[in-house]
Amino acid sequence: MPHKIISLISVGRHPQSGRARRSDQDGRAVELGLKLSGSQLEVVHAGDSEEPVLRQYAGMGLAEITILEQDQSMDAVASLSTYLASRDADIVLTGVRSESGESSGMVPYILAEALGWPLVARVADIVEIKDGTAEVLLALPRGQRRAATVKLPFIATIDSAAQEARQSAYGPGLRANMVAQSGANELDELRANWSEAPAKPRPKRLKMVKAKTAADRFKAATAKPAGGSGKVMKNESTEEKAQAIFDLLIEEKVIR
């Protein structure tokens, strides 16, 4: 029996231009969904059905996208949890964090709590689904992986280490069917009281010098910053050169 898989998508934001785009992690969630269930995959978005970015997702080869129509200021969680509860899905895939809005990354957690499902975070891949459990690979920093199993049904947030979303093709995207139904209109009241402003650049923390003596303070203020041209070894023996590299690798803890 094929498993019912739903990918949730949102409107992303390009890090350089700030333009709306297919969100990176959501795109990967769709990709993983396509891998697991092919054309059976259901893709759901809570928001505006006229949003052009949805066509970019559809260009991955989706015949249709379900849209829970609602205003931007409304709470997406309410619509989604009602919808998911009615769909009897096995796996719900989302990105870890949305690229626009609050991007708290809380949506999957609240959905999991509401549905009473387990949640696995930062999934790199779902290797196998068998006997009501799925074997998942979790992404850890620096390319490391952890294996785990989880009982169906569950929610998985997809890490940026998962398989990259396939190219979005213009034609199929244009022709895909946008199935809109009205979502729950629950105003996000808490958020209405927040004030939002364009991000201020964060000051980089300077190397804090709590100097005990005048000499230390003087040194901290005048010393040449670390860096500049490095050490060059030219006439030393091969052993010494290798040793110098080895010492650096040990110091940087890349060799343990």
Binding site: E99, S103, G105, E196, A199
Partner: peptide
């Protein structure tokens, strides 16, 4: 409702990053 990606924190107010670090959200 937690404050996420918070970077300026006082007992009363917190400033959080939102929308892939392009937004500062100030809230209690």
């Amino acid at each position: 409702r937690p404050a996420t990606q918070a970077w300026q924190v006082t007992a009363e107010q917190v400033v959080c990053r939102g929308a892939s670090s392009s937004l500062d959200i100030s809230r209690a």
